[in-house]
């Protein structure tokens, strides 16, 4: 079997790619959580003063959900610099890494905001009322009563989104990000070992995703109400 020979041979390259894949996924997920929380808070706010932000949030989610991530990546990497050149006249360059990070973050942020919104809405309406009736403000009620319950509710979907983002990061291969597919492709080009290489890449993903699922099950059990 060539499988193990290929593994020892290709592992320096593939691990380099995997490091990028996992690294950019983690970074974008951290940023996307922040983006997602704010987008969600704007989306559910009913204050008149925040209405433009609510529209902006709705537009953002609509746009991300309505376009493939490949198109978004191409747009940010190729089309955006051209647009900026048209507007400012300056020659703007966006690095592959930056474009990839922005794409992945924007994408996960939109889906996370929807996940958060669903979870907040799933918390019983009486919880907010009970909290407000004690004299807590809207913000205090959110942080003390609603969000802790919403986090428990959305945890499975949250982990699911992390998995999707990890796997979707391979799409960024198309704009030249040096992630795992990029190095896999290089190795295959050099050795023609398609079967072994892609088998290992699939196994890498399965291992990381299984680990994530395992951790999330444990957290879920500990947080259960």
């Amino acid at each position: 079997m060539d499988l193990f020979r290929v593994l020892t041979d290709a592992s320096p390259l593939l691990l380099k790619g995997l490091r990028m894949t996992v690294g950019i996924t983690v970074m974008s997920l951290v940023l996307a959580m922040i983006l997602g929380v704010f987008t969600c808070l704007f989306a559910i706010s009913e204050r008149k003063a925040l209405r433009p932000l609510r529209w902006l949030a709705a537009f953002y989610v609509w746009f991300i959900r309505g376009t493939p991530m490949l198109v978004q990546a191409m747009y940010i990497f190729f089309a955006l610099p051209q647009l900026l050149r048209l507007i400012t006249g300056a020659n703007v360059q966006i690095s592959v890494f930056t474009a990839s990070l922005v794409t992945l973050t924007m994408n996960a942020g939109a889906y996370l905001s929807e996940i958060f919104r669903g979870a907040i809405n799933a918390v019983n309406k009486g919880q907010m009322e009970a909290s407000r009736s004690l004299g807590l403000s809207y913000g205090q009620s959110m942080t003390k009563v609603i969000l802790p319950q919403a986090v428990r509710i959305c945890l499975p979907s949250l982990v699911n989104q992390c998995i999707i983002t990890l796997k979707d990061s391979t799409i960024l291969y198309a704009i030249g990000l040096s992630e795992i597919m990029y190095y896999g492709k290089i190795y295959v080009g050099r050795t023609f070992e398609s079967l072994a290489t892609y088998t290992w890449i699939a196994i890498f993903f399965l291992a990381v995703v299984s680990l994530l699922s395992f951790i999330s099950k444990r957290i879920e059990r500990r947080l259960s109400l």
Binding site: N124, Q127, A130, R132, G135, R152, L225
Partner: peptide
């Protein structure tokens, strides 16, 4: 104002967490 007006609901609405 709400601080000194307590309210008790039909569905209790205790904080489950």
């Amino acid at each position: 104002i709400r601080r000194h007006i307590g309210m008790v609901f039909q569905q209790f609405n205790l904080f489950p967490h």
